[in-house]
Simulated assay, not measured.
Amino acid sequence: MKKKIALIGYGVIGKRVADAIALQDDMELAGVCDVISDWRIQTAVSKGYPVYAATDEAKISMAQAGVPLAGIMADLLDIADLVVDCTPKKIAAQNVDTYREQKIKFILQGGEKHETTGHSFSAENNYTSALNRESTRVVSCNTTSILRTLTALKKANLLENARGTLLRRATDPWESHLGGIMNTLVPEKDIPSHQGPDAQSVDPELDVVTMAVKVPETLSHLHYWNVRLTRKADKKEIIEVLQTSTRITFINYSDGLVSNNTIKERYLDMGRPWGDMYEVALWQDMLKVEGNELYYAYVVDNQAIVIPETIDAIRSLTGMEENAEKSILKTNISLGIVR
C-alpha cells in the first residue's frame, strides 16, 4: 500500500517536495498545510492537492480568501503515515512536540539543528541508518553537495581531508524584492562555517573545513574545494570516482556553461520544472589534480538539490525500501536524473 505523506509548509522547498511525492508510485500526498492564503497556496489548489490550515487563525484568513480547506493540521496528521516539515527555519522545531504526541514519523529540513532529530540524512551516505527511525533531518543544500562529493572520494579510499570556500546566494529568487544584499560581500565570521560541522553530523569521520561568503545573487551557490588525497591520482581516476555518485553531473566551461545563470538556462531548456538542478554541477574541465592534491568547483541549486534526498528519506523512515541504491534509482528515474 502507498504511504500517505503530509506536507507542512508549501514554500520554496515544500512545493517541490509535494510535486516529487506526487510522481512516486509507492507514496501519495495526503495534503499540504500552511498559513498563507495568496497565490502560492492557490497553486496547490489548482494542482488538486488537499489544503489544510496550520492554525485556527490561518483557517479563518484562508477561508476568507476563498481557499477550499480540507481541515486543519490535526486532521491531516490523523490520516498520514509520515510528515515532511518544510516550514521556515525554527518553526519546524516548534512542531516536533505535536508530531511526537501524534506518534507520527517526521522529516525536518536543514535549517533545524541536528539535535532536534538526533539523525541527519544524506541518501548516498547513511540511508541505512535512517531505516524505520522516528525522524531525521535532511541536511541543507550546501551540506548535501559536500557529502555527495566527499562521500564518493571517501568510498574510494581517496579522501584525507577537504577545505572548501562557499559563495552563498543572498536570498531566494522569489523574495529578492524583500531583502538581501547589494554591492557588498558578507563573510561568515566563524571558521569553520556551519556547513563543515553539519556534514560531520552525517559522517563524523570527515575531516572537512568550510568558509563561506554571502554574495549579492539569488540563483545558486558556488563552491571551491581543495582536497588532500590519501595518495597520488590522476584526473581520469578522480572523474571515474565522482561518477559513482548518480547525483553529480559534469559540465564544461568550454561548452559555454561559465556561470550559474547559464547553467540555470540549460536546465530550463531541458524542461526541468522551474529549471531545477537536483545534481551537483561540477566543472570537469576545471578539475585539476597535482600529485595528491585535488582542486574542483561546482554549483549548487539551493532550491532543488534536497528534493531527491527528501524522497529517499521518506522511504527509509517508513521502511518501504531497505536498499539505498534501489531507492536512489527509483527517485532519480521519477525526477529525470539520468546520465
Rank of each mutant, 00 (worst) to 15 (best):
M1T: 02
K2T: 12
G9T: 10
Y10M: 12
I13L: 14
I13R: 02
G14I: 08
G14V: 04
R16N: 02
V17A: 01
A20W: 04
D26H: 09
A30G: 15
G31H: 13
V32F: 09
D34S: 15
D34G: 14
S37V: 03
D38A: 06
I41V: 11
S46N: 15
Y52L: 06
A54R: 14
T55L: 06
T55P: 01
D56G: 14
K59N: 07
I60T: 06
A65S: 14
G66W: 07
G66I: 03
G66T: 11
V67W: 07
D75R: 09
L76E: 00
L77W: 12
L77F: 12
L77Y: 11
A80Y: 11
A80N: 03
K89T: 00
K89H: 01
K90M: 04
I91Y: 13
Q94S: 08
Y99D: 02
K103E: 12
I104D: 09
I107V: 09
Q109H: 06
G118S: 04
F121L: 00
E124W: 07
T128C: 05
A130C: 10
T136Q: 05
T136H: 08
R137M: 01
V138A: 02
V139E: 06
S140Q: 05
K155P: 04
L158I: 04
L158T: 04
L159R: 11
N161Y: 11
R168A: 00
A170N: 14
S176P: 00
I181K: 06
T184N: 10
L185A: 13
E188R: 03
D190M: 15
S193C: 15
V202G: 01
P204A: 12
A212P: 00
T218S: 14
R228C: 03
I238L: 03
V241A: 10
Q243A: 15
Q243K: 15
R247C: 09
I251G: 11
D255F: 05
G256N: 09
G256K: 05
V258I: 14
V258N: 14
S259H: 06
N261E: 13
I263D: 03
E265P: 00
R266Y: 10
R266N: 05
D269C: 03
V280E: 03
V280L: 13
A281K: 13
L282P: 08
Q284I: 05
D285T: 09
K288Q: 11
E290N: 08
L294R: 07
Y295T: 04
A297D: 03
V300G: 03
V300Q: 01
N302F: 09
A304I: 09
E309D: 10
E309P: 01
D312P: 08
A313Y: 11
I314N: 08
S316P: 12
L317D: 01
N323Q: 14
A324F: 01
E325T: 06
E325Q: 15
K326W: 03
I328H: 05
I337Y: 08
I337T: 10
R339H: 12
